[in-house]
Design a protein around this nucleic acid. Sequence first.
DNA 1: TTGTCCACCATGTCATAACAAGTAAGCATA
DNA 2: TATGCTTACTTGTTATGACATGGTGGACAA
Lengths: 250, 250
Amino acid sequence: MEPKKETVLSLSPIPLYTQIKEILRTRILDGTYKAHEQMPSESELTRSFDVSRITVRQALGDLQKAGLIFKIHGKGTYVSQPKAFQNIGKLQGFGEAMATMGYETFSQVVSFKIVPADKIVAKKLGLDENEMVSEIRRVRYLNRAPISLDVSYLPRTVGERLIKEDLAHRDIFLILENDYGYSLGQAELQIEAMLADESLGRLIHLQEGAPVLRIERLTFTTDNQPLDFEYLYYRGDAFQYRLRVERGRI
Amino acid sequence: MEPKKETVLSLSPIPLYTQIKEILRTRILDGTYKAHEQMPSESELTRSFDVSRITVRQALGDLQKAGLIFKIHGKGTYVSQPKAFQNIGKLQGFGEAMATMGYETFSQVVSFKIVPADKIVAKKLGLDENEMVSEIRRVRYLNRAPISLDVSYLPRTVGERLIKEDLAHRDIFLILENDYGYSLGQAELQIEAMLADESLGRLIHLQEGAPVLRIERLTFTTDNQPLDFEYLYYRGDAFQYRLRVERGRI
DNA sequence: TTGTCCACCATGTCATAACAAGTAAGCATA
DNA sequence: TATGCTTACTTGTTATGACATGGTGGACAA
């Protein structure tokens, strides 16, 4: 079958490969070429658009980069499955995971202090160094066994207000949202493994040198103001941090 | 000034543009070409590597895709500023994530076996116990230092196909998506801390008893079929798992 | 019937060549 | 001086052609 010269490309300053790319993209999106179907081969496209192979390859290469098609060496070029374009990572953390499994949790406030922000805290919360912030230390218990130490840094006034709440049974995030009217958005997490030192071991009942999961979490409001910076130290032997992430569009 | 023919490219099956790309990447990462400095022009590279311009352009194009360099029409090619901290929260393979930050990584395949699925693997991948699956063990290197051991379980046929690929330099996720046409969706992660045992310590150069981040990752296609189940053991001292999540629950 | 080999078609790599177009600097002219 | 032109770079686009390599199926032999 002779592939007919179907499409007239314009002589405009728009490069040929761009024009071809757009035509092919349209055909993929409108279903002319369906997912997992084979596209016309490079030589077919070369003939039907009356351009050189290098031009066709540049168009196809761009579409491949964009994730619309994929190639298999020796077989051909195929249309990709369309991807959902969302990049949400939903975090399922301590309370939720434990509650769904029917466990009982509570927190014990170990200390509350107003301290000058050190370099890291200041940078994370967007404050000046040595500006005063609230530091809340809590030990979390699962079925009466200590499982983590949470060290939270918040703006001074927010912390002073929080410390009067029932932090033993209520979640800080829920208080911030439901009682104080903050709207929480994204959080940045950094997770690493370390060994327990003596003081941490005493608080969460671990031997010195036992493995600990250390999480730094900076939580932002929906308008991207940093609000809460925490260090979370989880017993490595008794806890798994579980989350579900999505793959974004390329 | 006459650009001298400096580097001898090998005749190996590795494409010329790949070799050139790696050489240039190394020079960028080791500071031979510094950020915001102009790279040698295409014609200079053409002469010094003694290849055609199309080959040089393919190498430069790949580096540009990876974000290491940028071009200005009519002026030249420049080294990008290394990105400080970025994105994440998306599902990314290790190599993919590191590459976007301009780090040099490669993997060494330690073993490839066809093994019967144990209870956990079978359950995660939705197979029957003792059904045969592919097990790929890789040690990943960041800037030439070992940083993690990855143990991947995949359906037998997928693994047999994968093992023929250039796993040393390519990310499995990208192969699955771009070459095989899988569309990856969500992943479930479980993260915990543990201590290195002797054999793990040997592989990633750690003392026995050093802290290790252990991640279980089950990756699904967009139509929710489990495809890849991995155990990732990261050196606790050298790596932080960083991600950005949306408001979840504590 | 089964297995091997080869032709054919697919994409991958690479060379040579030409012209287009953006940038910048130097030089000539108004 | 200021303007504009020439020139010599740069990257961008495109053509033609060649050979390498992977995948597949049919021809053919055992």
